[in-house]
Simulated assay, not measured.
Amino acid sequence: MDGQKKVQEEFDIDMDAPETERAAVAIQSQFRKFQKKKAGSQS
């Protein structure tokens, strides 16, 4: 862990915007599907 640099990235995202929430839900949904698929292929 010592070798990793901690870089504070600046981002301009309105966390209260409804489209931000919709995007987050969509990303999470896709990620869960990916996790299920990944877990299923290992067994």
Rank of each mutant, 00 (worst) to 15 (best):
T20W: 00
E9T: 15
K38I: 15
M15T: 03
A39Y: 08
V25F: 02
Q28S: 14
K6M: 12
I13D: 02
Q30E: 06
M1V: 06
D14K: 08
Q30F: 08
A23Q: 08
A26M: 06
K5Y: 05
G3H: 09
K5W: 08
R22M: 10
P18L: 02
A17L: 02
D16A: 09
E10K: 07
V25I: 14
F34P: 04
E19A: 02
M15P: 04
P18G: 00
K6A: 01
F31A: 10
S29T: 10
I27F: 14
E9Q: 13
A26D: 14
Q30G: 15
I13L: 00
A39W: 11
E19Q: 07
E9Y: 12
K5H: 04
D2V: 13
V25L: 11
V7S: 00
I13Y: 01
D14H: 01
D16E: 03
A24G: 09
A17G: 05
A24E: 05
Q42P: 04
R32I: 13
E10S: 13
F11P: 02
R22K: 09
I27M: 06
G3C: 10
M15Q: 07
D14E: 02
I13W: 03
E21A: 11
D16V: 14
K6R: 11
S43C: 10
Q35G: 08
K33L: 08
F31S: 15
S29G: 09
A17W: 03
G40N: 09
S43D: 11
T20R: 02
D2H: 09
T20P: 00
M1E: 05
Q42E: 15
K6Y: 04
M1D: 11
E9C: 11
I13N: 01
V7Y: 00
F31P: 11
I27E: 06
D16C: 05
A24Y: 02
E10A: 08
Q8H: 06
E9R: 14
K36Y: 05
E21L: 06
E10V: 09
V7Q: 00
S41M: 06
A23C: 10
I13F: 00
K37H: 11
Q42I: 15
Q8N: 11
D14V: 07
I13Q: 01
G40I: 10
G3F: 08
D12G: 02
F34R: 07
F31M: 14
T20M: 01
Q30T: 13
